[in-house]
């Protein structure tokens, strides 16, 4: 299974490393692919939008014309996981914000609302279906309102991990501690080991790329 990682900026290599580890230790056939060009979107079953600076990643998603194609691909079956800055980008669009959302996940986000770096923290949190997990929050966005999503974890009453059918969003970084379980959960979401790829016939990529 190919999993893409938006590779403009941020902790891209950490996600790649986790998938390599998952492949090695759990004998799963997962190839992480760094994506900067929309042509490669068609070869993946899942997509990670990593942490980094959301304004910078947003700028490149727009400039390289990936913003809309990702939205379209999700409607056709692509699964997406957004962490921290990535969560900001997949959340409900706020036209007043410097960083616009893709409306892939029905949550309202406020950027950097946990505070500046001084307020960054890590804490063990119970994740539904995963267990205790060392969650690292770095200038994290706050999930202010949740709509039609399942809340998988909360910290001090605030949701920090939510999902819909195909989209998983986390306000923390699951890729910094070497723990592979959140990524494994995402792989299960896509369709586990039996999953091959999104059937090509559902669309022709050339229609919009």
């Amino acid at each position: 299974m190919n999993i893409g990682i938006i590779g403009y900026q941020g902790d891209v290599s950490e996600h790649v490393e986790i998938f390599h580890k998952l492949s090695r230790e759990y004998k799963r056939d997962i190839d992480p692919i760094i994506i900067k060009d929309k042509r490669y979107l068609k070869s993946i079953s899942g997509l990670i939008i990593p942490g980094g600076e959301s304004t910078t990643i947003y700028k490149f998603l727009k400039e390289y014309d990936l913003f809309e194609p990702i939205r379209t691909m999700v409607s056709w079956g692509l699964h997406v996981m957004g962490t921290c800055a990535g969560l900001v980008l997949i959340s409900k669009d706020d036209p007043g914000s410097r960083v616009r959302g893709m409306n892939l996940l029905d949550v309202k986000i406020r950027r950097n609302a946990y505070g500046r770096q001084m307020d960054s923290f890590s804490e063990f949190i119970d994740l539904e279906g995963i267990g205790r997990f060392n969650a690292v929050f770095i200038r994290a966005p706050v999930i202010e309102e949740v709509g039609d999503v399942v809340v998988l974890a909360k910290h001090k009453g605030i949701p920090v991990m939510v999902r819909s059918e195909r989209v998983l969003g986390l306000s923390f970084h699951p890729e910094l501690t070497g723990d592979t379980r959140v990524h494994e959960y995402f792989v299960e979401m896509i369709g586990g080991e039996g999953y091959t790829s999104i059937p090509e016939r559902k669309y022709t990529i050339e229609e919009f790329i």
């Binding site: 980094g52 200038r139 501690t177």
Partner: peptide
């Protein structure tokens, strides 16, 4: 230590920038 995770983690978020 946990502090390093958060401090080095912040730096990692600037990569490629």
């Amino acid at each position: 230590s946990g502090d390093d995770l958060i401090k080095r983690g912040f730096a990692k978020m600037t990569k490629g920038g």
